[in-house]
Design a protein around this nucleic acid. Structure first.
Length: 477
RNA sequence: UCCUGAGUAGCUCAGCCGGUUAGAGCAUCUGACUGUUAAUCAGAGGGUCGCUGGUUCGAGCCCAGCCUCAGGAGCCA
């Protein structure tokens, strides 16, 4: 008999028909009630067995984690906790799960423990919900850009360019470490390497994205990126996914509008398609926050927070305005900041960003027009000679979720910045060609996908929103 | 990388001032019960106290080094 997915059975209103369900045992209670989950829904279906009618040895194998197939009649439940259940006629164990060895129990586990068994954590409600939401967000990103006529561009994972300066890179090589070919001066001879030059894993697809945008108009990338930074935080991964749109004839305002629209679109998509999952994650977060003191708990629950984000415009202020607000802020005047804001030009620390977003505005904030000294070479210089057309979007609890800018399209200006920042122009000749031939105003940004998933799921550690996290000293599975 | 904290049963944790045979709850196993909702009740089994070395008559506890994890900072998305 053809199997039916649990998700569709839970909404069924016609009863007495025979169905087959396949899934994994969550619990087996009272020698009668099997809670089965097949991943189609965060909810389980209850299958009821008459223990007198089945072999005792067979029922003993209904352990947490076992894969089973049941066939029976779909009926209205006699019990209280669920609407429908299956009266079992046939029961087959597809795969046993030794209860003494299976690490997941019908109880709450710490996220730290589940991280150690990331290959099995998919079986839990929390990770079921997180990865469903992750999928919905990824799908919504493509749908958003597709609806607006953007071209999905696949930029290279392996790159020879190391001038972007977005962080430490992972080397890609086939050279024999025990016998590396050397030049006369003792340095490694990469001419002998696979690509005939030193190569790395990409830290960003932006530069390649710009090349395509200055021909195709509007493009976006959505792929893995790699940073070999020794970062040990709840917001950083060595391998993460990034969305990088790049648009010809966009200025900074257009860029901000697009980023805000994108974020609202995908959050709304998750709210409408993952109601069950978000409801579960909302309760999970509430349980977790009960352990915190009152003043550290969120003012809004997860779903209200997401809706609030949709209903309000992001606050847009310049770096200069932010500095003024911070200078006059209580924690600055009472010297409660670890790094006090004294003058224009200082880079903002996490504590300052958190103050602006969580205390002062209490909503997402877009900061623009940063001093050129603390930003990348490719950002368009303003006429004041001091600032560049950069924009960072800061989210509560997450910090920087988007970083972008209008790009410097004037050849002599970008060359001047490259010289000042010691970036070898000759290696970037292919990039500068865009400025030599039909250069045009353009802009783009990078959105950290896992940080978006963090925000929408209410999870607090980035290692819990990617299936197999890659962090310093950890590349398991 | 820096700062702080942690590592004791499958999981979550307690373990006093260094002193007898290292405890609890949950999970597991055995039995009972049989419309349960993380079922309940009774009983049982389960330990390289992160690793290495040191101090001591004696170390889970004190000291040193290392490993791993978590939180914060930096870097950033």
């Amino acid at each position: 008999m053809k199997r039916t997915k649990i998700k569709s059975l839970l909404n069924e209103t016609t009863f007495q028909k025979e169905v087959t369900v396949m899934g994994w045992v969550k619990t087996f209670r009272n020698n009668q009630f099997i809670a089965i989950n097949d991943g189609s829904s965060i909810q389980n279906i209850q299958a009821v067995v008459d223990f007198n009618a089945f072999d005792e040895g067979l029922l003993k194998r209904l352990t947490t984690g076992a894969a089973i197939s049941v066939t029976g009649t779909l009926v209205e439940s006699l019990g209280k906790g669920q609407k429908v259940e299956i009266k079992v006629k046939e029961l087959e164990i597809l795969g046993d799960s030794d209860a003494e060895k299976f690490p997941l129990q019908p109880k709450k586990h710490s996220l730290e423990f589940l991280r150690e068994i990331a290959h099995l954590r998919f079986r839990t409600n929390t990770f079921n919900a997180v990865f469903k939401v992750r999928h919905a967000l990824a799908f919504a990103v493509h749908q958003f850009f597709n609806e607006r006529g953007f071209t999905y561009l696949h930029t290279p994972i392996i790159t020879a360019s190391d001038a972007e300066g977005a962080g430490e890179m992972f080397k890609v090589t086939t050279l024999d470490f025990d016998n590396t070919p050397r030049n006369e001066d003792g340095s490694v001879n990469f001419k002998e390497d696979f690509f005939g030059k030193a190569t790395n894993l990409t830290v960003s697809g932006q530069l390649e994205g710009e090349l395509a945008a200055l021909a195709l108009g509007d493009i976006y990338t959505f792929g893995p990126t790699f940073r070999a930074e020794n970062s040990n935080t709840t917001r950083h991964l060595a391998e993460f996914w990034m969305i990088e749109p790049e648009m010809a004839f966009y200025d900074l305002q257009d860029n901000m509008d697009l980023a805000e629209d994108l974020l609202k679109y995908v959050i709304n998509y998750a709210l409408t398609t993952c109601a069950d999952e978000l409801d579960f994650l909302k309760s999970r977060l509430e349980e977790e926050e009960k352990q915190k003191p009152q003043n550290e708990r969120s003012e809004l629950d997860l779903i209200s927070k997401l809706k609030f984000c949709l209903e309000n415009n992001f606050e847009r202020i310049t770096y200069t305005e932010a500095i003024d607000i911070l200078k006059q802020s209580k924690p600055n005047q009472k010297k409660q900041f670890k790094y006090l804001i004294e003058s224009w030009g200082a880079d903002l620390q996490s504590e300052h960003e958190r103050y602006l977003v969580e205390k002062h505005f209490k909503k997402p904030v877009i900061l623009t027009d940063y001093p050129k000294e603390i930003k990348a070479f490719y950002m368009r210089q303003n006429d004041d000679g001091k600032t560049v057309r950069a924009m960072d979007i800061l989210f509560p609890g997450i910090g920087e979720i988007v970083g972008g800018s209008q790009r410097e399209e004037r050849l002599e200006k970008i060359e001047q910045r490259m010289t000042e920042m010691h970036i070898p122009a000759e290696e970037m000749s292919w990039y500068l060609d865009t400025r030599r031939f039909g250069s045009a105003p353009h802009a783009g940004f990078g959105l950290g996908f896992e940080r978006l998933v963090l925000f929408v799921t209410g999870m607090t550690n980035i290692r819990d929103v990617i299936p197999f996290p890659r962090t310093p000293k950890n590349a398991e599975f």
